[in-house]
């Protein structure tokens, strides 16, 4: 499958990465190169093979329902690039 510039724009948009219009062709070419190489996987017969989700080494665990965290507002906000009082901020969102 070939990846066109429209697809590049769509992916960049989904990933929220700004791209310039004049970059799309180069990116498409580059990604096509990589995915062309990845296409070698077409040779592998995976019929009847279950997908591997994680390494399957750890034992499932659950935590107890106890409040052990929170109450660290200043730490949570300490790296905020912009804050007002105890809030993070973003450009105004109009719904």
């Amino acid at each position: 499958m070939s990846l066109d510039t429209a697809t590049v724009r769509r992916i960049a948009r989904l990933a929220r990465i700004g791209i310039e219009e004049n970059e799309t062709e180069g990116l498409a070419r580059e990604l096509n190169g990589i995915f062309g190489w990845i296409e070698q996987l077409d040779e592998v017969d995976v019929s009847g093979v279950a997908p591997m989700i994680g390494t399957g080494l750890a034992t499932p665990r659950m935590r107890e329902d106890v409040v052990t965290d929170g109450d660290r507002r200043d730490d949570v906000l300490s790296n905020a690039p912009d804050r007002v009082d105890a809030f993070f901020t973003v450009p105004k969102v109009v719904e």
Binding site: M1, I38, L41, V44, V46, V49, A50, P51, M52, I53, T55
Partner: peptide, 15 residues
């Protein structure tokens, strides 16, 4: 399916 799911299956074979 073509990429991610397939890759997870190949990963099973590699393991």
């Amino acid at each position: 399916d073509a990429y991610y799911l397939k890759a997870q299956k190949v990963r099973s074979l590699i393991q």
